[in-house]
Amino acid sequence: MTNHNQLDYLDELEAEAIHILREVAGQFERPALLFSGGKDSITLVRLAEKAFRPGKFPFPLVHIDTGHNFIETIQYRDDMVARLGEKLIVGLVQDSIDQGKVVEQKGKNASRNPLQTVTLLDTIADNKFDACIGGARRDEEKARAKERIFSVRDEFGQWDPKRQRPELWNIYNGKIHKGENVRVFPISNWTELDVWNYIRRENIALPSIYFAHERDTIVRNGQLMAANEVLNMDADDVIERRTVRFRTVGDMTCTAAVASEAFLIDDIIDEISNSKISERGARMDDKVSEAAMEDRKKGGYF
């Protein structure tokens, strides 16, 4: 006999993500969860709790810290780790700069965002991670729409879109050679709205910068940026206090704010449901070229 009751979509997405996390635990020797402090990786942490409690996580959390993070993000991270009692490994971009492995960008649009890749790859190599769980979603960007849930990277962290493994049913092939590693994206099939609805349903706390607040801002390349010491500002930049919020919590040098009166999660969900600007539209680093994301992924970016 067949009946027709299907899981609600959030339950289904959750169950799929938990299944993927458990596959990582079962298939890899040294996995890690890449934690950015953003809502997507916060969601991953929640899913990991659901997958492994009352046991411990079978992986540490790894944060690549550009040194230009919003303090609210770092505070959130530290509180969360204390609450969870799980291990946190921090890779500092500043270390990569000090070691001369990367050179800080100059000029008005200087950002440490592109430098992260080197620190990430070093952190992976130092800890011999064979799988890194990330919060990327396929609805974010055209190149991501084609990426597998288990995405194999070579020694240089590179993604080769032409050599992706077929990925069938919910069977994930995590076999790799020495030196390779796999990026795993458990919430590939979630949309931005799904993540927000899930956060609301699960009552998950978020860093305060996601919600509307007052802050000094400047307009740069048509976008609102937080005015602060890490942004290279000059006399042309007019600082103005505005009510804004952030839709992603990347590096302060490349994460744009949006004017918003969304003080509560319900307001945010309303805002997004009606919004006409997609999430990555608020990140300057994707605007560089139509194929920007694809190029960065090939170069080992998350």
Partner: peptide, 20 residues
């Protein structure tokens, strides 16, 4: 959508053993 929730097809592959 046909979702198979029949007892006849009750199948549960074990992925991971939780042992705190």
């Amino acid at each position: 959508l046909n979702i198979d929730n029949s007892t006849e097809h009750a199948r549960f592959p074990v992925q991971w053993v939780v042992r705190p």
